[in-house]
Simulated assay, not measured.
Amino acid sequence: MHHDGQHSAEWVILPQVLLSIPFVLVLIFYMIAVFKTNQTHRQWPVHRIIFLCAGTVLAILSVAGPLAERSYTDFRAHMAGHLFLGMLAPLLIALAAPMTLMLRTLHTGQARRLTKWLKSPPVGLITNPVTAAFLNIGGLWLLYTTSLYSLMHEIMWLHVLIHAHIFLAGYLFTVSLIYIDPIHHRVSYLNRAIVLVLSLAWHNILAKYLYANPPNGVPMDEAQTGAMLMYYGGDFVDAAIIFILCLHWYRAARPRVAFNG
């Protein structure tokens, strides 16, 4: 877990740049799209802009800067970054409705091609809650119960790949459960609720497992604090997803009042 000076210098710069650039670009293109769509459509909601800014900032903080540097040698910092990158940032970015903004900004032909792609079977597969949960929670079990956690601190490309997976899997999991952007492969509220509850349980079981069985090279005190952060921090984000899912479910099931003109 502790690297020599040359190794540390190499790891401080390149992985942080590679992982930060995509989020910086997302923020830039989102703001350009907001400016463009506001010229021809109804003003884009300010709260969505705030969600996007907060989500990208949290993601960048988790992969670059002091927290990211400390996470190489401190499991507690690593777990805080995991919560930011894999749970909170995906939720905030999903609430920013980036796909809806993109469809509003693109020309008609481009929007139709994008919509056609969103309707394709591969997109339907990866946005299915079961698949997304397997990629998200299953990926975490694989990371923390095998040698992957140690290897990602030794192999740079694996470090970048795993962090990219953590965000993408977290984002797919979030958008598979709460429909903020257009979803063409819709799953019932009941099925999504079942997947969410089971995923929450497996996430918490993993946190309890790590409390007693730290990854190789992680001191017991760091593992216990990090596991508690994973357990309670994960519950906080999951509670927000549960609230949004239940709110949407309630609105969809609420009886419509007939208008007698």
Rank of each mutant, 00 (worst) to 15 (best):
H3Y: 09
H7N: 09
H7R: 05
I21K: 00
P22V: 04
I28G: 08
V34Q: 08
K36W: 09
N38R: 01
Q39M: 12
T40Q: 11
T40K: 08
H41S: 13
Q43G: 13
W44P: 02
W44Q: 02
P45T: 04
F51H: 06
F51N: 07
L52Q: 07
C53P: 00
A54C: 13
A59K: 00
A59Q: 07
I60E: 07
I60V: 15
S62F: 07
A64F: 12
A68D: 11
D74E: 12
F75A: 05
A77T: 01
A80Q: 04
G81T: 01
L83F: 05
L88C: 08
P90K: 00
L92M: 10
I93H: 01
A94I: 02
M99H: 07
L101S: 04
R113V: 13
T115I: 12
L118T: 01
L118Y: 03
L118D: 02
K119V: 05
S120A: 14
T127E: 11
P129W: 02
V130Y: 11
T131I: 12
F134E: 07
N136M: 09
G138S: 06
L140Q: 11
L143Q: 02
S147K: 08
L148D: 06
L148F: 14
L148I: 12
Y149V: 03
S150K: 05
L151I: 07
E154F: 10
A169V: 04
V175G: 02
S176W: 00
Y179T: 12
D181Y: 01
I183M: 13
I183R: 08
H184E: 14
H185V: 09
R186A: 15
S188D: 09
N191T: 13
L200F: 15
L200T: 15
L206F: 07
K208Y: 14
Y209H: 14
L210E: 06
V218M: 10
M220I: 13
A223V: 03
A227P: 03
M228H: 10
Y232M: 06
Y232V: 11
F236D: 05
F236P: 00
V237H: 03
D238M: 14
D238H: 15
I244P: 01
C246V: 14
R251L: 15
A252K: 03
A252G: 06
N260Y: 12
